[in-house]
Lab assay of single mutants.
Amino acid sequence: TTVHVNGVTYHFPNPEEAKKFVDRVVKEAGLTVEVKGNQWDVE
């Protein structure tokens, strides 16, 4: 699973890890998340 955060790419072994990361980032920074298949874009 690939997560893009403001142009930076993070790779995770599974969607659960990616979701935990995204949830944390979104809570801390108040960002928006767009999910496209296995790819997350966070802005």
Rank of each mutant, 00 (worst) to 15 (best):
T1M: 08
T1V: 15
T2V: 11
T2P: 01
T2D: 04
T2M: 07
V3Q: 00
V3S: 00
V3C: 13
V3G: 00
V3N: 00
H4Y: 12
H4L: 14
V5Y: 14
V5H: 08
V5G: 00
V5D: 00
N6F: 08
N6I: 02
N6R: 04
G7S: 02
V8I: 11
V8F: 07
V8E: 08
V8K: 14
T9Y: 12
T9E: 14
Y10V: 07
Y10R: 04
Y10K: 04
H11T: 06
H11N: 04
H11F: 13
H11L: 05
F12P: 02
F12A: 00
F12E: 02
P13W: 06
P13H: 09
N14I: 02
N14H: 02
P15V: 13
P15W: 15
P15A: 14
E16F: 05
E16I: 07
E16P: 00
E17S: 07
E17K: 02
E17C: 09
E17L: 06
A18Q: 01
A18N: 00
A18D: 01
A18M: 03
A18H: 01
K19G: 04
K19S: 04
K19F: 05
K19D: 03
K20E: 11
K20F: 03
K20A: 11
F21H: 01
F21D: 01
F21M: 01
F21L: 01
F21R: 00
V22E: 03
V22I: 14
V22T: 03
D23P: 00
D23Q: 04
D23T: 03
D23R: 02
R24Y: 11
V25R: 02
V25K: 03
V25F: 14
V25T: 04
V25S: 03
V25N: 03
V25G: 02
V25P: 01
V25M: 14
V25E: 03
V26Y: 12
V26T: 13
V26G: 08
K27I: 07
K27N: 07
K27Q: 08
K27A: 09
K27F: 08
E28Y: 05
E28S: 10
E28F: 07
E28H: 09
A29V: 09
A29G: 13
G30T: 07
G30R: 06
G30W: 08
G30N: 08
G30F: 07
G30Y: 06
G30D: 06
L31A: 13
L31F: 12
T32S: 10
T32H: 11
T32V: 11
T32N: 10
T32M: 10
V33R: 05
V33W: 04
V33T: 07
V33H: 07
V33G: 08
E34A: 11
E34Y: 02
E34S: 14
E34T: 15
E34N: 13
E34W: 00
E34F: 01
E34G: 08
E34Q: 11
V35P: 05
V35D: 06
V35E: 07
V35K: 08
V35C: 15
K36I: 13
K36T: 14
K36Y: 04
G37A: 05
G37P: 08
G37F: 10
G37S: 06
N38K: 04
N38Q: 05
N38P: 14
N38A: 06
Q39T: 06
Q39W: 15
Q39I: 14
W40Y: 12
W40T: 10
D41L: 14
D41Q: 12
D41P: 13
D41N: 05
D41R: 04
D41K: 03
V42P: 12
V42Q: 10
V42N: 11
V42L: 05
V42K: 09
E43H: 10
E43G: 09
E43F: 10
